[in-house]
């Protein structure tokens, strides 16, 4: 059995770091894992997509439309953009953060503030988190990615014996930001 997760966000949000930590954890849990990332121009504020597949044996590294068991989104409308990947009955977990793209900043387009309400009417399994609010409470909005990770680990049942997720997080984030990231993970896990 292979599970497929699509993680989406905006360049600079730490989507890839969360994917790397998740991948390292899944490897530790004994799964075969493949992680595929599309970046390059995305660090300039574009959409970022990473794909993780894990199970007994994983072949293809990327995920096609209608193939994902789960979408994890770090931003509201990115969750909507990733919707075609979701399998019927699949799960979406998203932060309720809004990051306005250039078309909205210049007034050429309107940001759909109600995007998650509409998404909730479309899919059966939508969890909306306030990861960015928690991160702001902790003092740095940039750790909202790790808040989301904490929540995911619990939601996906990956908090198994033989793995210390906090140790993994601690090892993979910048040393000076270790403490706040550990707090972020705890807060996410407690959600």
């Amino acid at each position: 059995m292979v599970k497929s997760i699509v993680l989406v966000g905006v360049g600079g949000q730490g989507t890839i770091l969360v994917s790397k930590i998740l991948t390292a954890g899944l490897l530790k849990l004994g799964y075969d894992v493949k992680m595929s990332e599309i970046h390059g121009m995305s660090q300039r504020g574009g959409s970022v997509t990473t794909m993780i597949k894990y199970g007994d044996k994983v072949y293809a590294p990327n995920i096609g439309i209608g193939e994902a068991d789960m979408i994890v989104s770090f931003e509201k409308i990115e969750a909507v953009r990733a919707l075609p990947y979701l399998k019927k009955g699949g799960i979406i977990v998203t932060d309720d953060r809004e990051i306005h793209p250039m078309s909205v900043l210049t007034g050429a387009a309107e940001y759909p503030h109600d995007a998650l309400d509409k998404l909730g009417e479309t899919v059966e399994n939508l969890t909306v988190l306030k990861a960015n609010e928690i991160a702001e409470e902790l003092g740095n909005v940039r750790v909202s990615n790790v808040v989301l990770l904490g929540s995911l680990v619990k939601k996906m049942g990956l908090d198994q014996e033989g793995i210390d997720w906090k140790e993994l997080v601690g090892n993979m984030v910048p040393a000076k930001a270790k403490e706040i990231n550990l707090l972020a993970f705890e807060r996410g896990y407690a959600l």
Binding site: V10, G11, M41, S42, Q43, R44, G45, G46, S47, I65, G66, E67, I77, E78, V80, R81, L83, P84, L86, K87, K88, P101, M102, S103, V104, A109, E110, Y111, P112, A115, K118, T122, V123
Partner: peptide, 14 residues
């Protein structure tokens, strides 16, 4: 595969 019908959201070019 049966797909969910999404809706248009503003693009996000780099």
């Amino acid at each position: 595969p049966e797909l969910y019908q999404g809706f248009e959201v503003p693009g996000r070019a780099p």
